[in-house]
Amino acid sequence: MTAADDETTKWLARLEDGDEAALEWFFSAMRDKLRRMVHYRLDARLTGRVDEDDVLQEAWLDAVQRIESFRANDATEVFVWLRRIVGQTLVDLHRQHLGAKMRSANQEVRLSHLAPRANSATMSAMLVASLTSPSGAAMRAEANASLIDAIEGMDPVDREILVLRHFEELGNDEVAAVLELTRSTASYRYIKALAKLKAILDSDS
């Protein structure tokens, strides 16, 4: 067992005792992941009105309230629990601001909003970011657009797996826990999803 694992075990025990400091420890360790979740799932109409950090702040307060009822065996369970609280916060926010009904905390990520189809604007943005050649940027933009099409055309679970792994940057165990799959299923489906994606992209070209 590594030192890091020891540390985690120590904090898990303190969390079980309802120690707010322990919750803080986990929360800040997982902050980046939670933030990415908010970033990709917050309705864009709320950007500008709602700060991503405010969402996390609200979720934090919520978590503190519920700390008594929470028991976890490992860090992943803590993460899933916190993620669910953040998700609920998001649902509430959307209701409050937009009156919109969100199907679930895992509000569908809509990639198409992230990158419009290939055009001079995307090219310019990418040029600045990556310093590739203009023609290269055009090609990338086009490739991105078709990749987005391919991902959006996939089975919802596969798509969610891809989004969780790549956009929220979760590991296999976390994806499995979030989607309530076995580790094995999550693992095999992810590889299958990549293979499918490859096939779609190949057949497009």
Binding site: H39, D43, A44, R45, T47, G48, L111, H113, L114, A115, P116, T122, A125, M126, A129, S130, R140, A143, N144, L147, I148, I151, L162, H166, F167, L194, A195, L197, K198, L201
Partner: peptide
């Protein structure tokens, strides 16, 4: 390659268009 493509997509798109939901 598919994995790398998605990862690149994320890297390239996450900032350029944040904040505009057309």
């Amino acid at each position: 390659p598919a994995m790398a493509a998605v990862e690149t997509l994320k890297a390239e798109t996450s900032d350029a268009f944040a904040g505009l939901d057309p």
